[in-house]
Amino acid sequence: MMAMSPIDPGLQEALDGVRDPGTLPMDLREAYARLMGAANLLQTLPAVSVAARVMADIHDLKPERIRPGPRLMRWLARPRAVTLRLRPAWTLALAAGLAAILLISTQSTRSPIPGPHQGVAQFVGRFPGARSVEVVGSFNDWSRGSLHLRDENHDGIWHGAAVLPAGPHEYMFVVDGERWVPDPLAGRYVDDGFGAGGENSLLIVRPAQASLDDDATLR
């Protein structure tokens, strides 16, 4: 820090009014005159605050005229700080929700794709009041529990689909786990061979990917 020079005691006495300035040496008289001039000048200036002066300067500034296009581009390009305050509990819940939505949307569009020797079989049956309907046949070794039909609308129309090997398959519906019923919409039936007049439904699954041979015959 710069040291302040001590004021001469005679000059100090003159400034304090206890000594006649005319008795000061020449150089001190000049210093006295400059200091008194400065003091008089400060007393005559109006009292204007710093804030008022800054506001006055702002008012004096003329706004820069920028066309809307460049102004938008400048607004978009200008980096901005964004502060996001999240509670950990809400953050985890939000992440779980997003994951669930993603999973559901992925699963709803993902279906088994039939291979070259497979096709899609669709099953529909009207069983009002049924609690369960499943399809049992040669494609699942006549075992229960692998192909359940659904009735989401509760209108008695049960439906489902399965990818099966291409070719013939005998099957039946099992309603409520105990009643064996041929598919009324199958169109093909075959004697089940057990001597009581029972019939199986017969489904012939076509390969989902039609052969070039088949296409050529259409031309």
Partner: peptide, 14 residues
């Protein structure tokens, strides 16, 4: 040519 069922899940509506 007989129509081959598509390999997509179709949700029935009332």
């Amino acid at each position: 040519t007989a129509e081959v069922p598509p390999a997509v899940t179709r949700r029935r509506t009332k």
